[in-house]
């Protein structure tokens, strides 16, 4: 299992600067980041190399932060790569709540991060269908 940290931030200048500064000071590397915003605030999702440490440092600065498990799965970086995953999940009627990805080897390999409603079941289905899931350490091996 891989981990992501989700961070609450006001939709104001300087908030991302503060979060990334705190992570930089602790030499935490960020593999991927997404930001979604709503009415005056946003949630920043970060995939760091040391999730627990990142979580602790942000929380000790009283920034609302949540550490959670996500599915990190390798997909081919080709047309239809993502569809292979969504096809399988759809077959089992599993809803994707959030997803983002990054390329690790252009034209060959990408990593897809998934938040699915029934995470353990989704994980099992993906593994049974031959997909390679990654742990925190494995994400960083690329």
């Amino acid at each position: 299992m891989a981990h992501q940290i989700s961070v609450f931030a006001e939709n104001k200048p300087g908030r991302i600067e503060k979060i990334t500064r705190l992570l930089t000071e602790e030499k935490i590397n960020i593999r991927a980041i997404t930001i979604s915003s709503a009415n005056g605030f946003g949630v920043i999702k970060i995939l760091p190399d040391q999730p627990k440490k990142g979580y602790d440092i942000l929380r000790s600065n009283s920034i609302p932060t949540y550490l959670q498990e996500v599915i990190a799965v390798i997909i081919p970086d080709i047309p239809g790569g993502l569809h292979q995953i969504s096809f399988v999940l759809n077959k089992y009627n599993l809803n994707i709540e959030d997803a983002y990805g990054f390329v690790v080897e252009s034209g060959k390999k990408a990593v897809l991060i998934l938040q699915v409603e029934n995470q353990p079941q989704a994980q099992e289905i993906l593994e049974n269908n031959g997909f390679q899931l990654l742990s925190d350490e494995e994400i960083y091996r690329f």
């Binding site: 989700s6 709503a38 605030f41 946003g42 920034i63 609302p64 932060t65 949540y66």
Partner: peptide
């Protein structure tokens, strides 16, 4: 102010709470 202990990383949940 949002209480850190009651933040679960979920935008939708916060919007509903708002």
């Amino acid at each position: 102010e949002i209480i850190p202990e009651l933040f679960f990383g979920d935008l939708l949940r916060l919007e509903r709470f708002q």
